[in-house]
Nucleic acid binder design. Structure first.
Lengths: 340, 340
DNA sequence: CTGAAAGCGCTAACAC
DNA sequence: GTGTTAGCGCTTTCAG
C-alpha cells in the first residue's frame, strides 16, 4: 500500500524526485538518490505497474500468449505438454537473467473472436508477444502479419514486419539422423509420417530421402506411412506392417515425432520383437517419452528450452528497436540411443 | 488506441456514461446503454486494464504464480512438467468458462529475495494467487500464512486465513490401488518409496499397509525401498532387487510415482522379465509416462486438470468473499491396466 | 438518467 | 538538482 507519495514524504522530497531516483535518471545527486532508494526499501515500496504504464504510455512488457483449445486428448497432441512447458521455462529464464517481468496468458480460438490481437495487447500494455500454439485458422494468426505489436513465433512462420520465427532445421536434422541410422547398416527404412501436406513433414521426408540417396538407396512408397501424428494410429499401422512384412532386410522404423515412435514401440513389443536388435526405431523431438521406453529411443533433441530462451531474447531485442533475422534456427542434438 | 473518451465523443455522451454503460450499471437507460455498447464495439474499444485498476483500487485479478528453480534435470523432477501444465490448463479453462482473465507469472527462490509476496501482488494488482511449486524454504512460502493476499495451493498445505489447499486423498487412493492389486492374487508387495519423512510418502505407505492388513499380509521392511522420487535411482534399486531376489511368490512392485514405476519398468525389462506376467507393476499420478511403456502401467490418475480447475474456482470464490473449506479433495481414478 | 469533476499512482515536461 | 503540475484512462461521487 505504500505509494510514491509516502516515500516522498518520508524522505522529505517531492514525488518527482522519488520517481527520478527510482528510475535511473542522471539529473539527481547521488546522495539524495541513495537516500531515497534506502527509504523506499525499508518502507517496502514497489511501484504500481498499472499506473506506471498509464503514465508513460510506453508499452514495455512482453508476454507469452499461448493458444490451446483443450479439445484434444493427450495422445492426439503432436508432442505433448512437456515440449511446450520447456519453451515457457526457457523464456522465463531469459527474462529472469535480464531482470525483466514476463506475463503469460492463455487464449483459445473462441476467446479470440471476442477481442482482436491488438486490443488484447493494448489492454495489457504489451509491447510484444511470443505466440505459441496458434492454429492457422485462428483470428490472431491471421491478424499477426498486419499488427503493430511485435511477435515472435516458435516452430512456425508468420509474415509481417517485426515478426520473427524460431525454428529447427528439420531437413538437416532428419538428414543427419538418417545418416547415423544408415551407418549402422540398416537396409530398409520405414517412415512413419504425420500428415501428407504439412510443412514439417515435407522437410523431414526430404531429409530422409537425401540421406538415402547418398547411400544409393530409395524410400519405397509403401514404406511411407501416414499417422496424423497420433500415437495410436502409429501403433495400429505398425501392428499391421509387422503382420504383413517379413523383416528379411535389416529394418528401421523412423517416426516423424517421438510420440509416433512410442506408438511403434508398443506395436514392436506386442509382436515380441526386440527394439534395437530385431528392428531399429527413431523419433524426433527429444521429449521424455523417448527415454521412458526400454531401450530408449534414438531421437533428435529439439531443445525447446533454448527455443523459448531465444524467443524471449529476440523479442526484447525487437522491442528495443534492434533489427534481427526473420528466421532463427536453434541448434539440435542427435541423441544416440540403443534403439538403433 | 481507442479510449473511453473517443467512444464518448462518438456516441455523443460523457465518459462517465460510457463507463456506466460498459460496466453493468443499472442507473442508465437501456437505450443509451445499447447504443454505447454498439459504438464501442464498432470502434473496437477495449478498456485499459491498468487504468481501470488504478481507478477502482479494487484488485480483481487472480493469477498463477509458479516457482521453479530450473536447476533440475528432467528426471529429477517428481512427475515432470506435464502434470504441472495440466493444472495450468485446468485453471485456464475455469477462467475461460467464467469469462475472466488469468495472468501467469514465474518466480524463483532467487527472485523472491528481491520482493515480498505482498509487494508482488500489489505491483500486479492481484487479489489472489494459485501458488505452485514453492519450496518450503522459499520466502513466499514463509510469507503466505501472514499475507492478506488470498492464496490457493495445490498438493500442499499452507496455514493462514484465506489459504486453501487442493489435494488428493493419497492414503485412500493408495489403499484402493493396493486392494485391486491384491485381488489379482499377488503375494508379495515391494514398495518403491520416495523419501522417508515426506508427508505424501507416509500417507501412501499407510494406504498400502492398511490394504495388506485387510488381506492378513504384511509389508517386509526390506521391501520398502527409497528412491528419492528419482527414476534412475528406482531403476538401479530394482536392478539390484531382481538380482538378489527369486520371485517365488507372485510379486508386484508399487511405485510412489509414475516416474519411479517407469524406472522399475526399465529394470524389469533389462532382466528379461515380462511386466504384468512375471511381475506386477503400479505407479501413481496418471501422467502419460505410465502409458508409454508396454504394457501400460496401472496407476492412480490424480486429475491435475481438475485440480487446477478447482483451484481457480475456489480462489475466485474466496476473492468474492465466500467461505470455503480449508482443504479440498479432488477425486482420483484408478486406471486398471495390464501391468497387473 | 446523465454530465462534470475529483482522484487513483506515476512520469515527464517545465519552472526555479 | 529539485519541486510543481498536467495528464495518462478510468471509475465514482455529487449535482442536477
Amino acid at each position: 500500500m505504500t505509494t510514491i507519495k509516502d516515500v516522498a514524504k518520508e524522505a522529505g522530497v517531492s514525488v518527482g524526485t522519488v520517481s527520478r531516483a527510482l528510475n535511473e535518471y542522471t539529473d539527481i545527486s547521488e546522495e539524495t538518490k541513495n537516500r531515497i532508494i534506502q527509504v523506499a526499501n525499508t518502507m517496502g515500496y514497489s511501484p504500481n505497474l498499472g499506473a506506471k504504464n498509464l503514465s508513460t504510455k510506453k508499452k514495455n512488457g512482453i508476454s507469452i500468449l499461448f493458444s490451446d483449445n483443450m479439445e484434444f486428448s493427450e495422445m492426439d497432441d503432436e508432442r505433448g505438454q512437456e515440449y511446450f512447458f520447456k519453451q515457457l521455462l526457457g523464456a522465463c529464464r531469459f527474462m529472469e537473467e535480464n531482470d525483466m517481468e514476463l506475463a503469460i496468458y492463455h487464449t483459445t480460438s473462441k476467446r479470440q473472436k471476442l477481442k482482436s490481437y491488438d486490443q488484447f495487447c493494448k489492454e495489457h500494455g504489451i509491447a510484444g508477444t511470443i505466440c505459441y500454439g496458434l492454429f492457422t485458422t485462428d483470428r490472431y494468426y491471421k491478424e499477426l502479419p498486419e499488427s503493430k505489436c511485435h511477435c515472435v513465433t516458435v516452430d512456425y512462420d508468420v509474415a509481417g514486419t517485426n515478426k520473427v520465427a524460431i525454428i529447427t532445421d528439420d531437413m538437416q536434422a532428419m538428414y543427419e539422423l538418417t545418416k547415423k541410422v544408415l551407418e549402422k547398416g540398416y537396409e530398409r527404412i520405414v517412415f512413419l509420417n504425420g500428415k501428407k501436406n504439412t510443412e514439417v513433414c515435407k522437410k523431414r521426408l526430404k531429409g530422409i530421402k537425401r540421406a538415402l540417396k547418398e547411400y544409393g538407396m530409395n524410400l519405397n512408397n509403401e514404406d511411407v506411412i501416414l499417422t496424423d501424428f497420433k500415437m495410436n494410429q502409429a501403433e495400429a499401422k505398425v501392428d499391421k506392417f509387422l503382420q504383413e512384412n517379413r523383416l528379411d532386410q535389416k529394418t528401421a522404423i523412423m517416426g516423424i515425432t517421438d510420440f509416433v515412435a512410442v506408438g511403434a514401440y508398443k506395436a514392436i513389443m506386442r509382436a515380441g520383437l526386440r527394439v534395437g536388435q530385431d528392428i531399429g526405431l527413431t523419433g524426433f523431438d527429444g521429449i521424455s517419452a523417448s527415454y521412458f521406453t526400454f531401450p530408449a529411443i534414438m531421437t533428435v533433441q529439439q531443445n525447446p528450452m533454448e527455443k523459448g530462451y531465444m524467443a524471449a531474447k529476440v523479442l526484447t531485442d525487437i522491442v528495443k528497436g534492434k533489427t534481427v533475422d526473420k528466421e532463427i534456427c536453434v541448434p539440435y542434438t542427435i541423441l544416440e540411443r540403443p534403439s538403433i
